[in-house]
Nucleic acid binder design. Structure first.
Lengths: 205, 205
DNA sequence: TGAGTGACTATAATTCAATTTGGTCACTTG
DNA sequence: CAAGTGACCAAATTGAATTATAGTCACTCA
């Protein structure tokens, strides 16, 4: 087990300290422009006009800064997905849109903000907490969607909901995970529709 | 059967030449023991008692040798899958076994013959012909299985069979492709059963 | 006392010359 | 002519020396 999910030493200094925010802003800019690897902690320090040592009063490590930026990134994807699903009534249509949004949002980020996307790739590869949280968030959205669909009678109810959710998540996983998304990019135009179709057939009552 | 004296386009030298076979044997041994990268063409030449230059009378490049060994590898996996499915009557059960065999056989190779598996990883990453052929082969097996299931009345027939096949292949793909299999290894114990379940529900008439 | 730092260390990245390696070709030899 | 090779080249790789970087700590000074 790792200590990531356990107690607080995750963040140093006050969680809402002004300097912390400055660091995040500077890091977002620098990472996005030069990439995570090419940005040194000293660069960030210089950018906000403090010494490198002071950065470490707010973040435990460079990776911790990367994680922060990465979570923000992934939260944007989550927001995209929510936006795509929100306001849609029919659960089957919701599922279709969720699938499409996962792929589209991931690809959009990967083209539009390559450098930030590379952090997401590292996060997924090394299973940073932010990446795990992202997966969990999508799993939750899926579960909620399934509940709705079962309630409305659109989806079958025989299969245990956790099993259904787990299986569908496995189907989605290659498009949620940035590392795999890259490798699956041959399919990204057809995959959402085809897989939504398959999954919906599997859900029909 | 006779062979032309001029060089064929795909493979150099006679396709069944003795020396070619020796090269394959030596390569299999060396690659499996020291890995593809660490084995030099001179090593292979030494092993069969010829000069390095002579190797190139039979193979266009080192990668061509790697491809040969890789195809053999992948053909073994294909054989495993066929063996798992053969003799089983019920198409649903066939599908379950196919899924399980894909995962098991891939994992077995990856543990038992790491070094050879690494070639398969390269092949998948760089989309060598051998890897593409492997995917195509599995796609064919799947299609055949679907046909059988439709004929026997076990599977629904409304959805166009090519779409069904494409979708199910997309579900299988992460476990067929060695690069992705590695990344999905968290799930490999439950995935085959859960995904088979989902797919079978989607196929129910 | 607490915001902030310069000087330090251990390790990771980079550089660059020396070496290997994949690949070719003119050539021998039987 | 057919089987087989040594000598050669450009590109990749290695390894050791050098540099840059993440991260710490005792310290300042307001």
């Amino acid at each position: 087990m790792n200590n990531a999910t356990s107690s607080p030493p995750a963040a140093r200094g006050a969680a809402d300290h002004d300097v912390r925010a400055q660091i995040v802003v500077a890091a977002t800019e620098h990472f996005s422009q030069y990439g995570y690897e090419k940005t040194t902690v000293s660069d960030l320090a210089k950018a906000i006009g403090f010494s490198k040592a002071y950065i470490y009063k707010f973040f435990e490590s460079k990776q911790a800064i990367g994680e922060m930026i990465c979570s923000n990134c992934l939260r944007e994807i989550q927001a995209d997905i929510r936006a795509a699903v929100d306001g849609v009534e029919s659960p089957p249509e919701k599922l279709r849109r969720m699938f499409k949004a996962i792929v589209d949002s991931g690809l959009r980020l990967s083209f539009q903000d390559r450098k930030l996307y590379e952090i997401a790739i590292s996060a997924a590869k090394e299973r940073w907490p932010s990446a795990i949280a992202h997966e969990e968030c999508i799993r939750q959205m899926l579960l909620e969607l399934l509940r709705q669909g079962r309630e409305s009678g659109d989806f079958e109810r025989k299969t245990p909901i956790d099993e259904t959710a787990a299986a569908i998540y496995l189907v989605m996983h290659p498009y949620v995970n940035p590392v795999i998304l890259q490798l699956s990019s041959h399919y990204t135009d057809q995959a959402p529709a085809q897989l939504s179709g398959l999954v919906l057939r599997s859900l029909s009552p």
